[in-house]
Amino acid sequence: MADGLSIRGISYSYGPKTALNDLTLTVPSGRFCALLGPNGAGKSTLFSLLTRLFVAPSGQITVASHDLSQSPRKALAKIGVVFQQPTMDLDLTVRRNLMYFAALHGLAGKEADARVGAALERLDMAERAGEQLRALNGGHRRRMELARALIHRPPVLLLDEPTVGLDAAARAAITDYAHELAADGMAVLWATHLTDEVRDTDDLAILHRGQLLARGTAEEIRRGMTLSDRFLQMTGEDAL
């Protein structure tokens, strides 16, 4: 638990518009927590707060026991993030991209080499290391984003709609892999609006208009209905 992610009483507004209202959520180590919400629910705002793009005026976020507002650098060092936006340079090789990221986390030389090699190995991308990122298809690029997010071995992994724009096979591969990471002991927070990415045993938080509507395992929350129907019932909006 101490190594996981804890969000307590976070609120955020853009001017008069409330984006998040008193949100509390914990993701213990070893758990996959799906944050399910329609577009505009506040998922991206939450991710911006978790990655300290901006800070919430109230509430507290702790990452692996480090308070994000009090010791931001220690907390950030414990987070791996896959953003919605691509973060890699298309003109550089896969390896160069990953080495750049490693350096941003203070890793260089043999240590960085080894980490990058291991990350590529884990995602079966080792043979693509010398290729320009441009040569990779969308699914592989996403996989590289994930490999990148794991290089500094963070105990907490945040993924903001990581499967957007991918085909079914690539989507399933990344979803499976994130579940494996959780099974191996990471705390994984996975934001999505797609109910089929959530498994019954996953922790599930349903976010709607900045409010948390439900919190529990997916199985508890769906109450015998399909998750998609239950989600629709709760939010009054279409889920896929």
């Binding site: 300290r52 793009l53 931001p72 650098r73 950030l76 993030v81 941003l104 986390h105």
Partner: peptide, 9 residues
């Protein structure tokens, strides 16, 4: 965004 999440000032 990546740059800003680096654990440096």
């Amino acid at each position: 965004r990546l740059l800003l999440t680096s654990p440096l000032p």
